[in-house]
Amino acid sequence: MTSTVLPQAATPVKRSKLRRSINDCIVVTERNLVSYVRIPDQLFFSSVQPIMFVLLFRYVFGGAIATPGMSYVDYLMPGIFVQSLLFGCVSTSVGLAEDLQKGLIERFRSLPMARSAVLFGRTISDAVRNIFVMILITLVGFAVGFRIGTSFGLYLVAFALLILFAFCFSWVFAFIGLSASNSETAGLMAFPILFPLTFASTAFVPAESMPTWLRWFAEHQPVSIAVNATRGLMQGGPGADTTHWVVLTLIWSAIFLAIFVPLAVWRYRRVG
């Protein structure tokens, strides 16, 4: 079977520790993106879900929900953007749990690579995927009557803010993925977190109609804050207080990173 001689060993490139980590991170990110492209059905169905949410809320609930100062579709779309990107984070936990289950993490851990590269590679590739989701939903939104009330520049600011927010939030899911016993559980564990955060929020309906205790939660939790910031940037309007919400969104993003990056890396070192 093996007629040829074994290949000559190649010499590793001399790089600083930081350069090595960046290299590892890029290699893992590339590998994840290739996997996404290789499984087109997964890509297809993960795009179908946000489109369905746009259509359902726009045409089923839209008529029954009164929104102050703007049409429902303009009110809805910022909520849909945030919800879709956060739901996309499920793939962070499922992806890591699958790598763990299939023994890929074991292979990575036996290689002389940066301990954080597998996690950053995963969260970054999910952020790249989120860019496509964001563009896709924007187009669907335009098709059902969504219009930007401010300017295209501010829409882009909102775009960037949400990709960043989702990236930071996905570290929560990196930690979950490494803690779950298998990928199915990792997927299921996401929903008790995502449903209350996205639905008990100002994403789809104004909080005024909720009971007092729920209203307090809905007005202060991070998803609502990100939605308010997005709505302010995309629609503006009197009393939008956009700067306030954008700053709060950035603060929440920093909090997610500060807590869950160390937790996820700690989990990665001890997993298995």
């Binding site: 290699v27 590998r31 996997s35 499984i39 023994g103 074991e106 990575f108």
Partner: peptide, 23 residues
Amino acid sequence: YAAVDANLTGRENLRMVGQLFQL
């Protein structure tokens, strides 16, 4: 317990490991 990536080709798998060894 140390697997190859099922979605990558044989060549991509080996290239990935090489690059992670800083080749």
